[in-house]
Amino acid sequence: MTLLAVLQVVILILIVAGSVLAVWLKDLLASVIALGASSLLLALQFYLLQAPDVAIAEAGVGAALTTAIFVLAIRKTQRKEEE
């Protein structure tokens, strides 16, 4: 295990954790926040995999625009996931 491998494994664990949160949380806003964190770390993983082009795209799209569209959609609908 080199340092690079450790970094990659840690980031992958974080990505899975964020995605699990995004699926698991009942509050849609919290879910979107977790998805944003997950996509953030996904960009970091792209960065580690030597793909800065993809990381920039994921940064611009995932960090700003996707979160923005999701929050706007929740704003226009409702926040809680009803049971």
Binding site: P52, D53, A55, I56, A57, G60, V61, A64, L65, A68
Partner: peptide, 17 residues
């Protein structure tokens, strides 16, 4: 790194802002 999509997405974030 960069190009049309990335730059366009970054600039579109300005609209979001």
């Amino acid at each position: 790194p960069g190009g049309g999509f990335q730059g366009g997405a970054v600039a579109a974030s300005a609209v979001a802002l």
